[in-house]
Computed example of a mutant assay.
Amino acid sequence: MIDLRSDTVTKPTEEMRRAMFEAEVGDDVYGEDPTVARLEKLAAQQLGKEAALFVTSGTQGNQIAVLTHCQPGNEVLLEEDAHIFYYEGGAISAFAGVQTRTIKGDRGAISPNDLRKAIRGDDVHFPETGLICMENTHNRAGGAIVPIENMKEVYELAAEHKIPVHLDGARLFNAAAALGVSVDQLAQYTTTVQICLSKGLGAPIGSIIAGSQSFIDRAKKWRKRLGGGLRQVGVIAAPGIIALTKMADRLYEDHERAKQLAEGISNIDELNVVNRVDTNIVVVDTSSLGIAANEVLEKLHAEGVLAVPFGADTIRLTTHHHISNSDIDHVLSVFNKLFGKVIQ
Rank of each mutant, 00 (worst) to 15 (best):
N272G: 00
C196T: 00
M151H: 14
F54H: 08
D27T: 01
G142C: 02
V282E: 06
L300Y: 06
G97E: 03
N267W: 03
V331D: 13
Q188H: 07
A170H: 07
N280Y: 00
G121C: 05
A159N: 07
T314M: 13
A43P: 02
D313A: 15
R231E: 07
A177W: 04
V124W: 11
I216W: 11
A158L: 06
L77W: 00
N62R: 04
A312S: 14
L78A: 08
T192H: 00
N275K: 05
L115P: 11
G105T: 00
A262Q: 07
L317C: 11
L53I: 10
A141I: 09
L201D: 10
A51Q: 14
N139W: 11
G234H: 15
E303V: 05
V296G: 04
V9K: 07
Q63K: 04
E32N: 11
L67F: 02
R18A: 13
K224M: 13
H321D: 01
L53D: 13
S198I: 03
L317M: 15
N336K: 14
Q46C: 10
S287W: 01
S214R: 14
R218S: 13
Y252C: 02
Y30P: 01
A51W: 08
A94T: 03
D81V: 03
I242P: 05
V334M: 06
V296F: 01
A177K: 08
V296K: 01
I163C: 11
V98D: 13
A293E: 13
K104I: 06
H125Q: 10
E88A: 10
R101Y: 00
I84E: 12
G89N: 14
G89L: 08
G264Y: 07
A210R: 06
A219G: 03
N294E: 04
T192I: 00
V183L: 11
E156R: 03
V25E: 05
F126M: 10
L186P: 03
M134C: 09
L226I: 06
R250K: 08
A203I: 03
L251D: 07
P34Q: 12
N136V: 05
G121T: 08
M247H: 15
K104R: 08
R218C: 09
D254G: 14
M16G: 11
A178W: 01
T318M: 15
G228Y: 08
S57L: 13
T191P: 04
R218N: 12
I103K: 06
K221M: 14
H301P: 00
G105H: 01
N136W: 00
I132A: 09
I119N: 10
A170I: 02
E298N: 13
I323F: 12
K224A: 15
K41V: 04
E298A: 14
A43E: 01
E160L: 03
D269F: 01
A177V: 08
A243C: 09
I343E: 09
T100G: 15
L42F: 02
L186R: 10
S93E: 14
I315L: 15
C133Q: 00
V36K: 10
Q213D: 12
I291H: 05
E270Y: 00
G31N: 12
M1R: 01
T129M: 14
I236Y: 07
A82Q: 02
I205N: 08
S212N: 13
G121A: 08
E156D: 04
T68D: 10
A237R: 12
D168E: 05
H330I: 03
I209W: 10
G229W: 13
V29H: 05
A91G: 07
